[in-house]
Design a protein around this nucleic acid. Structure first.
Lengths: 286, 286
DNA sequence: CGCGGCCATCATGATCGGTGATGACAGTGA
DNA sequence: TCACTGTCATCACCGATCATGATGGCCGCG
């Protein structure tokens, strides 16, 4: 095991051809460099330089050591270069919409925590509209959710179609108001569903209101009604209704990653990169 | 600059999955290993392990460090492996026959001293027979010279032809005894020359005797007579006589490197290797 | 022959590093 | 629930290590 500091001194002596010059280059004293070389020679049990009082020359073994020293120091420099950049550290307050709780978002966050253990990750799950409001208020740093109607910000992750979904065998009775399962306001999906029905002149009633995806999923599985939902994020055991045309078209939806007004930096940037990189895993490509 | 010792501890922790186990493997204490990792983390300014009280897991940065640590330690081990073999050190008493003083033997010896500065090299130049006698007496360790008639030892370096040489324009008078330039006994060449002439019934006389190559060379250049010499080692400004057939054939000669009875070891072995490796430079290939 | 530049060596004071003891923590089994 | 065990972190201690400045030997130069 060779001391890298001694190797550096050795290399400097070999390159400058002198102990004094090497010491100057390294910001050390001549006696220090002399000791470094001496210890290195002791460690290798070889004479590395021939010190003819007014010249310093490498021996054969010294030339061999030269190669090894270069190799070792190069490896060190590669490592040092990698770790030179300031580490990602701090806090991210991350908001993710309910839609993602059943996706692989947890795995993405888990990987992020693995890669950046020094980042405190605070996760808030809620409705997209609420999250964007908190982002605007500065209570969140990064939000993953549907793009609100009035908001043009955020990086578009993917475009999706809103569809009507329900239990396996559920078919709404055309003669009755459509039984709706919705999130409470200010749910974007809720607003879109009511708008579409109203525009089509189709009567409706609220069959169930729940603030959580598991709540609306339970209601749908129970056959309480239909639910507007992004096609790519339909929870397991629920399916788009076979005949979408019996209900009005819901239009599209855009899933965005928003970072407030400023470009994300530091931990928020790192998390945004991680989410974008793992973005494919958030929705099932159809 | 990372401390290789700390890297070794880090690697051991990563491999064994525990500080205590790593410490056992390394022959250190657990607290020491803990400090090593802590210092390494401080040096890299990253957290490398997640210590969940009953498990130790690499972070993402830790995995990066793993690669660098392996690379650095591999470089160290290569160097350590090279310098692990005990260095060549000591004394060689080397005998070289007069024949080689004008060859590149000095360059070979110079390179040897460069490669093995810790070897004291004692050079004896003399007649092959004398040198072999000293080798047998234990007063030399290695001898380079012509193989004596009664000696079968030694590593054959090359076979050569003995030829008659003289000054540029020298031609022996067939009616007169051949004027000979010879080394004093126990010169091998001398014996071979006299034998050949006697066997051919050709009269001869000693025109000059000198113990050194420069002596016989001067005599030959002065036109004092002819000289038996190995063809490949003819000194500059002397040439084989144009008509060799006017004098009896001298036969061949073998140049050998002899190491006494035992196989050479240590410094003598190293020098022998160097001479053999540079052997081509000792004679001009014709 | 003194001078200056070079490297080796030495004593010294500060720093570093391994150690053992101790503490915090969590999983285990009675 | 509680003692026990095994984990890792932390700390004070002391001996080893290290960089330093001073000194000395060496050699070439003026």
């Amino acid at each position: 095991m060779f001391d890298p500091v001694q190797l550096r001194s050795f290399l400097a002596v070999a390159q400058t051809g002198g102990f004094t010059r090497a010491a100057e280059r390294l910001g050390l004293r001549q006696s220090t460099v002399s000791q470094h070389v001496r210890r290195l020679e002791a460690a290798a049990d070889r004479q590395l330089f021939v010190r003819d009082t007014h010249s310093v020359r490498l021996t054969g073994e010294g030339e061999a050591m030269l190669g090894f020293a270069r190799s070792i120091l190069r490896a060190h420099e590669q490592a040092a270069g990698y770790f030179a950049q300031t580490p990602v550290r701090g806090r991210v307050r991350f908001g993710a919409s309910e839609d993602f709780v059943l996706t692989e978002l947890p795995q993405i966050l888990r990987a992020f925590r693995h890669d950046h253990p020094q980042v405190d990750l605070e996760l808030t799950v809620g409705l997209s509209g609420v999250l964007h409001q908190q982002l605007a208020d500065g209570r969140l740093d990064l939000v993953l959710g549907k793009r609100p109607a009035d908001d043009a910000d955020g990086r578009l992750l993917w475009r999706d179609q809103l569809v009507w979904i329900g239990a396996e065998d559920f078919r709404p009775d055309p003669t009755q108001p459509v039984p709706l399962i919705v999130y409470p306001p200010p749910s974007i999906t809720r607003a879109r569903a009511l708008e579409a029905l109203d525009r089509a002149g189709r009567p409706w009633r609220i069959a169930c209101t729940s603030g959580s995806l598991s709540g609306v999923r339970a209601a749908a599985l129970a056959g309480l009604g239909v639910l507007a939902h992004a096609r790519s994020l339909v929870p397991p055991s629920l399916r788009p209704l076979a005949r979408q045309e019996e209900l009005p078209d819901l239009g599209g939806a855009e899933f965005v990653l928003s970072t407030g007004r400023a470009t994300a930096r530091g931990p928020a940037r790192a998390l945004a990169d991680a989410v974008i990189a793992g973005g494919d895993r958030l929705h099932r490509a159809r």
